[in-house]
C-alpha cells in the first residue's frame, strides 16, 4: 500500500476552538473546530483548516483561471470558467484601445470557442467579473484543455512550481494551469503530459507523488 496523507471527514472534530481558530474548510460549533469536507487537515499556529479532496471550483478574487468564451454580448463576453456560475468579461477589461461599441464587432477580439487565461476581478454572489488587465492574461491558441479537480491544482503546480515544471520539461510541452481546474497544453508531448496530469489528479493524496510522476515520464 502506498503511504497516504491523513484524511479527515465531514463532521469530524479537529480541535478545540479555544485553542485554535476555524480556518478554511472548517466551522465552529459548541467549542469545537469541525471539518466540512473530506480532505487533508492543515494546522498552523492559529488556525485549523482542511484542503478538500474534491468539489467544484468557487471563484475568488485574483484567481487566475482558464475560461471558454460561450457567448458574445454588446458590452463583453460570457465565459465558462468551470464553476457553477458563468463569468463575464467586460470589453473595458479586455481591450486597451477605445472602442465605439455601436460600430465595432467585438468578436474580432474574442469569439465563441476562444480559450482565455484571465484573472477573476470581482465576485458578488453568483456574479463574477473577469479581467485581462494583468500581464499573464492572454488568448490561448492551438492547444488542448483537460480538467482536473480544482482542489488538486496546488498539488499539480507543486512547491514553487516543482511538479508542473517536471511535466513541462520532460514532455517538452507548454502548459498553463488555471486555478479553476482547467489545464491548457500545447506542443509535441501533449498525450504524455495529459497522462501525468491525470495521475496527479487521481493520486494527489499520496506521499512521494513527484517520484512517481518522474518515473512515469522517464519510461
Amino acid at each position: 500500500m502506498t503511504e497516504v496523507r491523513k484524511i479527515v471527514l465531514p463532521g469530524e472534530v479537529l480541535g478545540d476552538s479555544k485553542e485554535k481558530k476555524s480556518g478554511y474548510g472548517t466551522f465552529e460549533e459548541e467549542g469545537g473546530v469541525i471539518s466540512k469536507f473530506i480532505g487533508i487537515p492543515k494546522e498552523t499556529h492559529d488556525y485549523i483548516s482542511v484542503i478538500p479532496l474534491s468539489g467544484v471550483y468557487t471563484p475568488k478574487r485574483q484567481d487566475k483561471v482558464i475560461g471558454f468564451i460561450t457567448g458574445v454580448e454588446r458590452v463583453g463576453w460570457v465565459v465558462d470558467i468551470n464553476s457553477p456560475w458563468l463569468a463575464f468579461l467586460p470589453v473595458s477589461e479586455a481591450v486597451d484601445e477605445f472602442i465605439d461599441l455601436k460600430k465595432t464587432d467585438i468578436t474580432r477580439f474574442y469569439d465563441v470557442k476562444d480559450v482565455i487565461y484571465a484573472q477573476v476581478d470581482n465576485v458578488k454572489r453568483g456574479d463574477i467579473k473577469l479581467t485581462m488587465n494583468t500581464p499573464v492574461a492572454r488568448k490561448l491558441r492551438d492547444g488542448i484543455t483537460v480538467k482536473i479537480a480544482p482542489s488538486k491544482v496546488p498539488r499539480l503546480i507543486g512547491k514553487e512550481g516543482s511538479m508542473i515544471n517536471i511535466i513541462k520539461d520532460k514532455t517538452n510541452t507548454v502548459i498553463r494551469v488555471g486555478q479553476n481546474g482547467v489545464v491548457w497544453l500545447s506542443g509535441e508531448g501533449v498525450k504524455k503530459a495529459i497522462k501525468a496530469i491525470k495521475m496527479v489528479d487521481e493520486k494527489s493524496h499520496i506521499i512521494g507523488l513527484t517520484n512517481e510522476i518522474t518515473k512515469l515520464l522517464s519510461d
Binding site: 466540512k36 469536507f37 474534491s54 467544484v56
Partner: peptide
C-alpha cells in the same frame, strides 16, 4: 461527501 459538498 465524495462530491466535496460542504457538510456539517
Amino acid at each position: 461527501a465524495d462530491a466535496g459538498a460542504p457538510m456539517r
